[in-house]
Amino acid sequence: MTWGARIRLLLGLLVVFAIVAACTLVFTQRQSRAESRSASITAESFTVGSAYPGTVTTMDAAVGDEVEEGETLFEVRSPQLARDLESDVVTADDLGMPVDDDGTYAIVSTVDGTLSEVLAPVGDFVQGGEVLATINRAGTLAVAAEFVLTPRDYGRIGEGSSVEVSLPDDQVVTGTVSTIDVDTVDGQASSTIVIDSKALAAEPIGGLYQPGTPVTATLQLRDDGPLAGAADAARDFLRKVGW
């Protein structure tokens, strides 16, 4: 082999390596999917509280029970309420809840859902306005996920972007981006994204399907075309050299 042929071979290899390196860079910069750093199931939560100070005398539902709007959860006996009723300071209609003459009143669920927390068991004395329990509203299961993206890739997502959610049992449900909250840290966009999923929202709350369950969310980034990565790389180079 002549020296000329060797030089041409060497130049050809360098060109091939350069093309492979450029393609690798473009592929890395233009990934079509992004996986969440962390993600978990969420739900809308509502609290129920006491109207008057008193003692919790009965509890008609336990944590994990499904409850309906208007269903009685607790009964509280309040001597102060009994005195106010007797002196006509208030009436049962004023309170908007079932009340006995002895000052015992019912605390009812404000929504359909699942009782997720009880803060005042039977025998506890509660103040007026104190929270007694929390209810996760039915049909509101969603996912809150954190993604770390480059600013350019952050620009490739938006409301309605497709997301796959992998549950701990390896089941996968689909969803869409509902809201995006972003902070830029060290040149990267740290985004907290809320994902709505009809399949997830249709599940009863409990077991794997409850707030706090860790999941993995995979976000589909917008495809800007096969030459988008090369164009981005060229713009970055020109910006670095001051053009």
Rank of each mutant, 00 (worst) to 15 (best):
P214I: 03
F237Y: 15
V163F: 12
S161P: 14
L13T: 13
T184P: 14
R77D: 13
V108D: 04
G158L: 00
V122K: 10
T218Y: 00
T47M: 03
E203R: 15
G206Y: 11
Q188N: 13
R239D: 09
V111P: 01
T218A: 08
R152N: 09
V76I: 15
L141D: 04
G158C: 07
C23L: 14
A62S: 12
V241G: 06
T150D: 11
P204F: 07
S45G: 06
I41D: 06
F125A: 10
F46K: 03
T150W: 05
L85W: 05
P53H: 00
S116N: 04
L115P: 10
G4A: 08
D169P: 08
V173K: 02
S162Y: 15
W3P: 05
D224N: 03
Q31E: 11
G64H: 03
G225Y: 00
G103A: 12
V56H: 03
P121K: 07
F46G: 00
M1Y: 11
D196Y: 07
L219C: 07
L25K: 08
R37C: 06
L208A: 09
E68L: 14
P121M: 09
R8S: 11
T28K: 11
Q127S: 10
P226N: 05
G113C: 10
F27G: 00
Q220C: 02
R137D: 12
V108Y: 01
G12N: 11
G128P: 09
D181Q: 13
N136Q: 14
Y209E: 11
T24W: 14
T176W: 00
L9I: 12
G175W: 12
Q210C: 04
R156E: 10
A51F: 02
I193T: 05
V111M: 13
D60F: 01
P168M: 13
R137L: 02
C23I: 08
D65K: 03
Q220I: 08
G225D: 05
G64F: 11
I193R: 06
V163P: 05
A199G: 02
Q220A: 11
V177E: 09
G4L: 13
A144S: 15
F237R: 10
D112C: 01
F147I: 02
R77A: 09
E68A: 13
S50R: 03
V76E: 02
S109F: 02
T58A: 12
Y209H: 13
K198Y: 09
E117Y: 02
G160A: 05
A233C: 04
A39M: 11
D153R: 11
G103S: 08
W243T: 04
P214F: 09
A106F: 10
Y52K: 02
S78Y: 12
E117F: 05
G206S: 09
P151G: 06
G139A: 05
P168T: 12
T55W: 07
I107G: 04
I180T: 13
A199I: 12
R235L: 09
A133P: 13
A61C: 01
R30V: 08
A233W: 05
L9G: 03
F27Q: 01
A82S: 11
A144Y: 10
G128Y: 00
V118Y: 06
V182C: 00
G49V: 10
E75A: 06
A144D: 15
L227Q: 07
